[in-house]
Design a protein around this nucleic acid. Structure first.
Lengths: 197, 197
DNA sequence: CCTCAATTTGAACGCTCGCTCTCAAACCGG
DNA sequence: CCGGTTTGAGAGCGAGCGTTCAAATTGAGG
C-alpha cells in the first residue's frame, strides 16, 4: 500500500555493471550513474546503500551471469578443447568489437581496487574461482575423452587457462590486434594437447 | 646562477612509481605524492607539469628498468626455459612477499586507465612489447638449443607467455596462494616443451 | 474519498580533489 | 656585497566528488 517503483532493480544493476565495466569504478561518478540509469541520487542511495554497495551488487550480477553460462557451455558435449578455444576467442571478439576494448570487468577491477578493498577482493576471488572451476570441469571431461593426457595436472592447467584468459583481457586493452591474441590462444591449447604421459 | 634543487628528479620519479604501483593512479592523490616524496605542490607542478605527466614519467622509468633487466636475464646463457620459469616465479614472489600483493604496475594501469587514456595506452603498449620481445628472444635461443620444438610459432608463444605473466598479476591480487600459481606456470612451460614437430 | 506509507525529486551539504599563486629564502656570477 | 634567478613554502582556488534531506508526488487500502 504505497507508491510502486518506476524502475526494475535488476535492470538498474545490469546497466550499472555495464557502466563500471566500461569506465571503471573511480571514473564512474554517481552523477554518471544517476543520469545513465535514470535513477535519482536519493532513490539510488535508499535502494542500494551507496556507490560501493551498488558496485558489489554489480559484481554479484556478473558472477551470476557467468555461472549460468560458462561451465554449461564448456560441457555441452563433444570435444571440449575446441569449445574452450571458442570461449576464449569469444572473449577476444567481445572485447575487440566494441569501439573501445573494455577488457574484462574482473581484470579491470583487480587492477583498480585490489588488494585494498577487501569486500571487492572477496567477490573477485569468488568470480575467478567460478572461471577456474569451469575450466577444471572442462579439462576433466577432455581427459575422459582422450583429448588431453591424464598425466596433466588438471587443477594447474585450469589455473593456467584462467591466467591466460585474464592476461588476454589485459593485453587486449593495450593492443587489440585479434590475430596475435588468437594465435597465442591456439599455441597454449596446442601445447596442452601435446603433453604425453 | 640560481638556487640548486634539494631533491633528485630520478629519485622522486622512482618513489612516485612505487606509490602509483601500490595505490593506483586515481587513488594516489597529489597530497599523497607531495607528502611521500617530500616535494611541495608548486615544485612538483613546475618540475613535472601535472599529475598525469608525472605518471607518464613513472611508466617510462618502469620501462627503462625492465628493458635493462628482462631480456638480458633471459639470455645470460645456458638453458632458457628454467630461466623463464625463474623470472615468472620471481614475479610471483615479488608480488606475494609484500604485506599486500600489489601485482604489476602494467596490469594495474591497464585495468584502471585503458583504453580511455591514450597516452598511457601507448606507454603500456610499449612496455608490453618490451616484455613480449624479451620472451621472443628467449624462445628463439631455446629453439636453437633444442629446448623447444622449431615447429612452435615462436611469436605466438611469446605472446602467450606475456598473457600468462599479466594474468598471473591479476590473479595474485585476488588470491595470493603461491603454490597454485607456480604449478600453473610449470604446466604452461611443460606444455610448451612437449610440443613436437 | 481520504489516509498514509513509500517513492520521486532536486537542491544542497561538506569534503577532497588537482592545481595555482604569491612571497621569502637560497644560491651564484660579478 | 649585491642583483638576478630559481627554488621552497604553503595558503587558497574553483570544481566535482559522494552523499543527504525535506518536500512534493503517487497509489493502494479502508
Amino acid at each position: 500500500m504505497a507508491r510502486p517503483r518506476t524502475f526494475d532493480e535488476q535492470d538498474v544493476i545490469d546497466r550499472a555493471m555495464e557502466l563500471f565495466w566500461t569506465q571503471g569504478y573511480e571514473t564512474t561518478s554517481v552523477t554518471d550513474l544517476t543520469s545513465a540509469l535514470g535513477v535519482h541520487p536519493g532513490t539510488l542511495y535508499r535502494t542500494f546503500g551507496d556507490k560501493h554497495a551498488l558496485f558489489l551488487r554489480a559484481l554479484a550480477h556478473y558472477r551470476a551471469r557467468l555461472a549460468d553460462d560458462f561451465a554449461p557451455t564448456l560441457l555441452e558435449g563433444g570435444p571440449v578443447l575446441p569449445r574452450i578455444r571458442a570461449v576464449l576467442i569469444g572473449w577476444i571478439d567481445l572485447a575487440v568489437q566494441q569501439d573501445q576494448p573494455r577488457g574484462c570487468l574482473i581484470a579491470n577491477t583487480a587492477g583498480e581496487l585490489l588488494p585494498g578493498d577487501e569486500e571487492v577482493t572477496l567477490s573477485v576471488r569468488g568470480i575467478l574461482s567460478v572461471v577456474e572451476d569451469g575450466f577444471l570441469q572442462g579439462l576433466r571431461a577432455a581427459a575422459r575423452q582422450g583429448e588431453i593426457s591424464p598425466a596433466l595436472d588438471l587443477p594447474a592447467a585450469a589455473a593456467m587457462l584462467t591466467m591466460l584468459l585474464e592476461g588476454l583481457q589485459v593485453i587486449v586493452k593495450a593492443d587489440p590486434d585479434p590475430r596475435r591474441l588468437v594465435s597465442a590462444v591456439d599455441t597454449a591449447l596446442l601445447s596442452l594437447a601435446s603433453v604425453r604421459d
